[in-house]
Design a protein around this nucleic acid. Structure first.
Lengths: 350, 350
DNA sequence: CCCGATCGTCGATGCGCATCGATGATCCGG
DNA sequence: CCGGATCATCGATGCGCATCGACGATCGGG
């Protein structure tokens, strides 16, 4: 195992001083073309890579973004993977890396990675409505971006999909189809127990739309396939075509409907809240939570803060909810009395 | 934003020298109980955390494990999350962190994180049968553990679930139920295209068992629900009770069977290769790929290498495949002519 | 009661890099 | 043809920590 070359080795190889090598790499001082080339060649020849620790020590930046993730109790593994993926790629585009931190380190985890100078910024996913990490973040030396809108997040950098708008759009759509009762297949008790902030936000939006449209909502908390089946049976008990707002367990719900010979878009109206994977492909009428858009904007915010763009700092930011019509709802009586399925038209949240 | 305290600050606060603080933290030299307490209190009072970069620079260790993950084309997001979860917890238990690296950086990614001294070890997931990273790993200054068994991995640290054994066990089980033809719902073309090493290994095991038991295998590469349906129809075309080895798309397969009113364990025998999530709960007869066991052993290996346990180094290591009988296969004629369902008995791979 | 052996602590040094001030070289306008 | 400005480069310094050698204090055996 040969010792890794240092910038001093490169300097010797190129016949310049170590500081010149440093300036070639950072571009923070003008360097003649000739010197630049010589240094670049030396770097190649030695396959030099700068020592990250030394860089962090001398340069006061780590080129690392810490991401705090709820690994044990993910509401959706696929959704989480999309976030991780987008975060990592965005980081790499700026020559940064991603450090993984588990949510169960809690506030102490934030203090640790910040205190040890392990990162230049922290992203906290799945923040709760009342979250100890919010307060901790205020006192940290590195910027923190929250995915989610905590109740006491005044002045913090928060960013999320507009779950409240999604609740409104979904219920409004079903109301517009003439339904007076909507059954919501909602997050299970286990997810509720986590206190995720998006649940009350979605609920508030849905309830507001329900009041406005004089619709009754029936909430079902579904964790297992059994829960889903029960909820579906419950929805079917009422007379007429049932209306389902499916917020979780989409495959299970479709399965339950299929078992009962209920065809979405004919015998039942289904609008889903999707993570951007499953159901758009299946042509469901749905509102996507747009994980890619959210994560992209999170990283824009992160690098804005790192770069010190003061314009970037503070406040909550929402990615708007929009509905995509698919085959799981009947044509809207008002819109087009007897037209073909009008896929993929979008309707923004109010 | 107050400047972060350094070990020198702690030393001053405690009335000792900086080096004493360092020895208190590392325990590498005897320290009197009195001094230790004074220093510990000073650390608390200042909420001191050591600077990771400085530590890496002076101590030649980073307390970081790099994990290379195939984010874009995960065969299963859930399976991947389990690995990430186990890796992270194992790392934290040893006061290490996890750095995420995307697989599409390829061999260059390994060189980067090793060259920059970003980590003490690298874990590479989903290694291919012929993988450029294998050769690269040999020249690296940090140990690399591969999850998967590449063809040219001689002497490298490889570790994986025994997919070959799984292929054998699954086919043998179905053969033992009297089947002469087995339909395999296998990984889709997209997964094949990645060249993952586990596919040929599983295939080899299945084929060997098929030859031994004089069974004919029909392979179906299923990416979409449509592919699955076609495969199921194909399996049904033959006379008698069909036999299905389901290696991917388990929910889709179950759905397709349900649509066709084929009840697993009665009208069709189903044995699944599961990722440890879905199907055990559903009581399928299955072989689990044991992601938790695999990742645990990976991290044992990683820290063995970091600690310099020479006993740990080199060679491939397989987590054995075992079958768990569930309700998706009929009782075995030879075993018990007319007994109750014999759940949860295990059968090891040969 | 003295001497060698721990034991506990300190000061000095260097890890590899970024950055600052300084210096020599080159340029241009008057 | 000279002086100030610009350009390219160098040397020195310090970031915060781990580690090594040194040294005073304390202890036990003779």
């Amino acid at each position: 195992m040969p010792k890794a070359p240092t910038s001093a080795d490169v300097a010797r190889e190129a016949g310049v001083s170590q500081s010149t090598v440093s300036y070639v790499m950072s571009g923070k001082r003008p360097i003649s073309e000739k010197t630049r080339r010589r240094v670049a060649e030396a770097i190649d020849r030695l396959t030099y890579e700068p020592h990250a620790g030394a860089r962090a020590l001398a340069g006061h930046r780590t080129s690392t973004i810490a991401v705090v993730m709820p690994l044990r109790q993910a509401s959706s593994a696929e959704r989480l993977m999309i976030f991780v993926e987008e975060f990592t790629y965005a980081a790499r585009r700026r020559d940064h890396d991603v450090l993984l931190v588990t949510a169960d380190e809690g506030a102490a985890g934030l203090r640790r990675v910040a205190g040890r100078s392990l990162c230049d910024a922290i992203v906290v996913m799945e923040v709760g409505s009342h979250d100890a990490r919010v307060e901790t973040a205020r006192g940290l030396a590195v910027p923190v971006v929250f995915v989610g809108i905590p109740d006491d997040g005044e002045g913090l950098d928060c960013l999320d999909f507009d779950f409240e708008g999604a609740g409104e759009v979904i219920v409004s759509e079903l109301a517009g189809l003439g339904h007076r009762t909507v059954d919501v297949i909602g997050w299970g008790e286990d997810v509720h127990a986590q206190g995720f902030n998006y649940i009350p936000r979605f609920t508030a939006g849905a309830e507001r739309a329900a009041r406005r449209s004089d619709v009754r909502l029936r909430w079902h908390r579904a964790s297992t396939g059994e829960d889903v089946r029960r909820a579906v049976d419950n929805a079917r008990a009422a007379s007429g075509v049932p209306a389902l707002a499916v917020v979780t367990a989409i495959p299970e719900t479709l399965h339950a409907l299929s078992e009962r010979r209920l065809r979405p878009g004919r015998d039942v109206d289904v609008v889903a809240l999707t993570t951007g994977f499953v159901s758009e492909a299946d042509g469901l009428t749905n509102v996507s939570t747009r994980p890619r858009d959210v994560s992209r904007r999170v990283m824009e915010r992160v690098f804005g803060l790192i770069d010190g763009d003061l314009a970037t700092r503070g406040g909550a930011d929402l990615v708007p909810a929009s509905l995509t019509r698919g085959g799981s709802t009947r044509s809207r009586p008002a819109d087009r009395p007897a037209g073909p399925a009008d896929n993929h038209r979008e309707k923004e949240a109010s």
